[in-house]
Design a binder for these strands. Structure first.
Lengths: 224, 224
DNA sequence: TCTCGATTAATTTGATCAAATTTCTTGACA
DNA sequence: TGTCAAGAAATTTGATCAAATTAATCGAGA
């Protein structure tokens, strides 16, 4: 079917895909806490999907490191340890700035505009203590930028790292919600407008380092 | 059940796990070529497993980048492009040497011994043109080393990268089977014995670069 | 070239079996 | 008589399969 020169996308999105996205968002922006157990049957009711779609969503998220399978067939959200955090930090700090650098020369004015809009929505969310909205906005900001790079493999790695990081960040975010942290997104936007890949990469690096430090401190204090 | 002081592992390994390993090995060491289509029903017969286990194995491998889902419900082994290869190369060259460096101080004499044995089996495999055995040995060498690092997150990233790389490497390996390439594994073993993390990382880096170059050349020649 | 079956394969549901966990019961011992 | 631990029953949950449904593809005929 072709309307006005645009191919209409009327393919049905399968339930397992929808379920996967729902569950992933739960991990990413709050629904699930570190250490929390997840059951197939529970999700079957909560997301009212069948058993197979839920099963497949869990398998995918497990492969991505968002969930862990225990020997007893049980599934839960992994709790971060210092060792895991170090690895995640290393990987994020090498991969994500690289993605940003690759994205810089490919950013359209339209995409930059969109990034500005997304960022504009983040501060209000912080101010009204809406942690899920803050996390969603933050995630959207980064991955809207990353998508511009076209570096699919690196993006998927970053995605996996965010899934491991998310639940802990959520716990921590509540405590730092006063918004007195330096806003690296503004630096990033400036670099994006200037088309300066190096500067953009540095801004992203600083942003990540900030988040990692927050979680690391909370971890040492035993809050996560 | 406890026999002779050793806890007996009589927990049944679920079919979906077995199926996953089988399918992963097919991707990794040869069964599946780049671009090859994969069907659920086909695997059901080939691995004689039920539908659910096959389905879950495919979902996991898809999440790991070993397979791609097309909009039309079709699944296939992704074909490498120059852009993908660049990303994989970047990620492998930053992550795997890091893992090796982390592993160095934790290598037991026993593990080094095992690495020597594995490496000793690789040359004969090359000489008798046994590509699957060569690939299996190569994979085993790297990941036996990597496991010693205890860096689970980084290992999983490496695993995913190997899954993306494997099918193309297989195609290429057949052409270079004469074994006239410098053996980086020997350098790695030497560094391992000396406990020199930096040197070990460099050896692994060189080994990866070699493999990447081979695939890159084949890619430019349109052989993959 | 387009439309309409026919075919193939993926998706989804529901049922059944097996494993793990929790709850309940029972009896020994203080 | 009360406490607690061992064991058994009940419940919950996961694993697997088979059948029914739905989507995509292919080819014949208009």
């Amino acid at each position: 079917m072709d309307i006005g020169g645009t191919e209409v996308q009327d393919r049905k999105v399968p339930t397992h895909e929808v379920t996967y996205v729902q569950l992933r968002n739960m991990v990413l922006t709050g629904g699930l806490a570190p250490g929390q157990a997840v059951t197939i049957q529970g999700l079957t009711k909560e997301l009212n999907a069948g058993m197979t779609p839920v099963r497949e969503a869990i398998r995918r998220l497990t492969a991505e490191g968002a969930l862990t399978l225990h020997g007893n067939r049980r599934v839960s959200v992994p709790r971060l340890t210092a060792a895991l955090l170090d690895q995640i930090a290393f990987a994020r700090l090498t991969v994500e700035p690289k993605i940003a650098e690759l994205a810089a020369p490919r950013l359209s004015a339209q995409t930059i505009e969109r990034l500005v809009e997304i960022d504009a929505g983040i501060d209000p969310a912080i101010r009204r203590d809406d942690i899920p909205a803050y996390l969603t906005g933050n995630h959207l900001f980064h991955f809207t930028l990353y998508e511009a790079s076209g570096a699919q493999v690196l993006i998927e790695i970053a995605q996996s790292l965010w899934l491991r990081f998310g639940p802990s960040l959520r716990v921590v975010a509540a405590r730092y919600s006063e918004g007195r942290l330096p806003d690296r997104h503004l630096d990033a936007l400036e670099a994006a407008r200037a088309g300066d890949g190096r500067a953009l990469a540095r801004a992203i690096e600083a942003d990540i380092a900030q988040g990692v430090d927050m979680v690391r401190q909370a971890l040492q204090a035993g809050e996560v």
